[in-house]
Design a protein around this nucleic acid. Structure first.
Lengths: 247, 247
DNA sequence: CATGCCGAGTTAACGACATTCGTTTGACAC
DNA sequence: GTGTCAAACGAATGTCGTTAACTCGGCATG
């Protein structure tokens, strides 16, 4: 969507050292453009370009707030290389974007952990984690969108990669739920079930706010407190009917 | 994303009546293709093509499950007209897709209403509505994704249009929450706050399942019952600390 | 009955896109 | 010096949304 709004092609920020003449040349499409080319990488470190590509993509995504702005051409231009060079380091655009977001994802886990550690009792830990998760998503909406609000077109390896880092995050949540049960604050519910529910609940708050920013939402922390609070209290409340609990 | 996977260009299903010769002609890009063109609309009813375009887009979206499959060219080919003809009836592709999904959205509201009506007590109504909402989203994941899981690129008019039909749906939810309060099953919470929370909660369940279908989710109705059940019970439970309730 | 209008389309083109193929460059080992 | 090979380039392919200019043919009007 957002068809037709093409990526802003930024000029390269690369430094070219020894050349005294500005390297005016035609780009791949016949247009004359002043593109200071980056220095070619030494024999060993082809991965330097890889890093620069990731940084450029990261910048474009954050700067323009939409993955449409991260076109292969825009990234290449910013880095100071040609589009095909990117394919020496990434299988395709999906994998590039994915890696950018996966990096930010690790920060998400760290942010949640930090918020959790500053609390003492299990209930507050859970609440603080949820708030931090939501706050991080709202602060990085495009990353969150790409990671959690998109049709999965991931190859199995990509999937395993995300799974690895996201299970790290999920495991933390699961442990906090475990602690909640140990503290006797969870009725006889399954901690994993509760952990999933907390994730779904938090995701519901943050993803709707990202998707519909113009809706008249209440203050986000109030929303979280209301929703999480009621849910967590409900875990201890008696089930009115004689319905069987889940496993 | 899912770059490079282009839309499958289907052959036209349009009927051409009087012509006895198969209309072999070059398409807009020089390729020889047998495209039975539809009959030109009469002076009055230019809207017939509009309807056919909507149907074709609807079909492609449902058939291939991704809006990438709904390219202007693919729709045009299926209808039996040329790509620019679509722009006589829709401002751009976004508006076309949007209209397709908005139609389905009305069915969502209807499905929820139907489920609600088959229950009697306010609590069951709320639960049934949530289940129906989630089931509908899972049955029409691409429509749901476009409507509720995407960055909003809507023009103000589009937004008002969706707002109109979606507030219709939300109003129903709000009334059900109102009824819950009247029945004394909601503590002293604000019905609108609860309605928003129920939406967020339901959206969290369905949107995560759409985005991460490979995750090992539990049975969806069990999940909904657990989450909604605990939340709704929590609304009646005492707030442990002396914290102030939301407005 | 001729004629001109105009709604409903088409043809052709533009500029963007991701990606691939074949070629060139240039730093290092020998 | 010279050959090798990682690293990067140049050109091209086929897709995309969208626009501008043109054409066709039925209807109202003279």
């Amino acid at each position: 969507m957002s068809m037709t709004q093409y990526a802003p092609i930024e000029h390269s920020t690369a430094q070219h050292s020894s050349a005294t003449v500005v390297p005016l040349r035609k780009d791949a499409y016949g247009r004359l453009v002043a593109v200071p080319r980056r220095e070619r990488a030494r024999r060993g470190d082809g991965d330097r370009l890889r890093e620069e590509i990731l940084e450029a993509a990261e910048y474009l995504l954050a700067r323009y707030g939409h993955d449409d702005a991260v076109s292969i051409r825009a990234v290449a231009n910013r880095v100071g290389c040609t589009p095909p060079a990117i394919y020496l380091h990434f299988e395709d655009k999906t994998q590039l974007l994915f890696e950018v977001c996966a990096r930010r994802f690790n920060e998400l886990t760290a942010a949640v952990d930090l918020a959790v550690e500053s609390e003492s009792d299990p209930l507050s830990k859970l609440m603080a984690g949820s708030k931090a998760y939501i706050a991080f998503g709202l602060a990085n909406p495009e990353h969150y969108r790409i990671l959690f609000m998109q049709k999965p077109i991931l190859t199995p390896e990509q999937w395993r990669g995300l799974r690895a880092s996201s299970t790290a995050g999920f495991n933390g949540l699961e442990q906090r739920c475990q602690a909640l049960q140990t503290a006797g604050l969870m009725g006889n519910h399954n901690p994993t079930t509760v952990a999933i529910a907390v994730w779904q609940l938090s995701h519901g708050v943050v993803s709707l706010m990202i998707a519909k920013p113009s809706w008249g939402w209440n203050e986000v922390d109030d929303t979280t407190e209301h929703l999480m609070g009621a849910y967590l209290r409900g875990l201890n409340a008696e089930v009115p009917s004689g319905r069987v609990q889940e496993p």
